[in-house]
Design a protein around this nucleic acid. Structure first.
Lengths: 344, 344
DNA sequence: AATTTCGCCGTAAGCGGTTACGAAGATATT
DNA sequence: AATATCTTCGTAACCGCTTACGGCGAAATT
């Protein structure tokens, strides 16, 4: 409402003094500092963030950038959870979160053509999701903005990233089926080749299967939906009738697989154990409740915020790639009796 | 990268001329305008939005404010969808979207204590969700920021709002059960008293039941989750064994109700028809697929953006309250054979 | 030909802060 | 007592852009 000028006039000092007093900078006596603080409060003074940004050339805002058609979590609110974590810890440091979703055309055109990335509206940005093409990432990295990748990584670069441990999670899930339940023929329902997430999870599965001396049985489908899970499970059971357990690359496929099993008269988990990945909110309400790998999405957001803010503040200078481990959430679908419950 | 100064120097004119040329303002000859545009492109000039905001005192950003613990769509991404619609149309008008989630304490303390609402960071804000207390809404409305309510309304005020037609949706769902399927004893599973959404939907149910000359059978529970739906359905079936159809106040409760029916050996929809509300993404994958009222969340976001931007631009001067109709999505759980499918 | 009109452009003042620099007065040093 | 040092504060420049105002030459008017 009121400006620095107003406060200065009210107290009878210069704006410089007021600025120093309010920003806890040296060069102000305690008495005047107090008087300034009182006047500021009395006049309901709020620093104009725009003006401040103009001189400091820091906006205290970070951009969250993601693919437009990925954002609306038609499926599970994966990115919404990340945003939740981001916003939460950014707020702690009094940073702002700005949201930008980009179309395919914009992502292909590169950051040079996007005002929101060029006009110093933000100090840095987090690029989320594998849909952000490498060329785009490199483009923004070439600018002087701080970049942070989430659920996306570029090999052989120094761009910091926070990721879920897809490989380890799927390995753990597979190991659980093999070691705790003694399955000898466990299949994998996976998504399209080239999709990094699917690749990594598949890799974890293979590692576990190899380590146990078993042979991998993999069905790839182009999508990772309930319907494609249904279809893939049918393919798998046709091809490998002796299969007693299935690892799936995400929860939607797992649910589809359980439907397929039910349709064939195979009970889950008695006749076929199923584990998913992601721990979407509906996993615990599936029939039977789905054993799955929990992805710490909110924590990923929190960590990304922490890391980028620390970079702004100069606390952190080196780039890092952080892989967050997920934990296996045991429910009924894998054959465990006592389904341990976890909080949301 | 480069400033107006740079462009001016390069062309050999004053910054004022460059500004006029780039902003399509009169007072510049065509030739110089062309030369300026070329130079600006050659020098990769981008107007510094901070500086521009400082002079125009418009930031071209709108704040999306919601309750912190409501945002992370643990349930269905209701607000995420709204954000999707908001961001989409704001981007069309080259506005930005900033995200703020507030804790209970902050909401109770009121807008006076929140920097992001006081320091002119945004031109206006949309307050989403019934968790924003009236005092808070009135507080920001008293400031000179443009306010827009979404999924929240204040009676007897001039504050613009966009809402879902909860009353009409639930009435339509109830009518469908009564008229198309001939149910005579249809119950309602609803949430706590005082929660506006629940009240409105309940009111729609009552209207339909009254109009048909039937007697309402209502079960209230404090939460609206799958578990509480399960419990409420059991209560309902205990109290009214002859009940042949249930309207529920949201999809989660509907799914719980279907589970309860299954547990009691009553088949859905043959022995008990169930309809939900919200059309969450999992509704179509329920067993059986759930008939429910679709809430046009993305459109609500789009409309809110449109309305607030129009207000900024001076196109729109009067406040309005817009109620968006939802449509009944017919699936199997209500007893209809041919389940009409709708796109996501 | 003198005057008015008009289009084009530069000058300069601001928007609301931050900060380098220098001028005092108060205090410490010798 | 004279000098040096420190603290406190004001002056002014600056961040990059917008815009009111005025000047000036060319075209239009008489």
């Amino acid at each position: 409402m009121s400006s620095l000028q107003d406060v200065a006039k009210s107290v009878g000092v210069s704006v410089a003094t007021v600025s120093r007093a309010l920003n806890d900078k040296p060069g102000v006596s305690d008495v005047t500092r107090q008087r300034v603080l009182e006047a500021a409060r009395a006049l309901r003074y709020w620093p104009n963030s725009t003006a401040r940004s103009l001189t400091t050339s820091r906006t205290r805002t970070v951009l969250f950038v993601t693919h437009r058609h990925k954002f609306p979590p038609s499926k599970d609110p994966f990115y919404a959870q990340i945003i939740r974590g981001l916003e939460e810890t950014l707020a702690l440091e009094s940073y702002n979160l700005m949201l930008v979703t980009l179309t395919d055309e914009q992502l292909a055109a590169g950051p040079e053509s996007l005002p929101m990335l060029q006009d110093r509206r933000a100090d840095g940005l987090v690029l989320a999701g594998p849909d952000i093409p490498p060329s785009f990432v490199l483009g923004v990295a070439a600018s002087d903005l701080s970049v942070m990748l989430v659920d996306n990584a570029l090999r052989d670069t120094q761009i910091p990233a926070v990721l879920a441990d897809n490989e380890g999670g799927c390995r753990a899930a597979t190991c659980h089926l093999i070691e705790s339940h003694g399955h000898r023929v466990v299949g994998l329902l996976r998504g399209a080749e080239g999709w990094a997430t699917s690749e990594e999870r598949a890799s974890g599965y293979c590692t576990a299967v190899d380590a146990a001396g078993l042979t991998p049985r993999v069905i790839s489908v182009s999508e990772t939906t309930i319907d494609s899970g249904f279809e893939a499970a049918n393919q798998a059971l046709d091809a490998y009738p002796e299969m007693s357990a299935m690892v799936t690359v995400n929860d939607a496929m797992a649910i589809g697989a359980m439907r397929a099993a039910a349709a064939r008269g195979r009970r889950v988990p008695a006749d076929l154990a199923v584990v998913g990945f992601d721990n979407i909110s509906w996993a615990k309400f599936a029939e039977p409740p789905l054993t799955t790998v929990n992805v710490p999405t909110v924590e990923m957001g929190r960590l990304a915020a922490r890391l980028i803010v620390d970079r702004f503040e100069g606390v952190l200078t080196v780039a890092s790639r952080t892989v967050l481990a997920g934990d296996l959430v045991i429910r009924a679908s894998c054959g465990c009796d006592k389904a341990a419950e976890t909080p949301d």
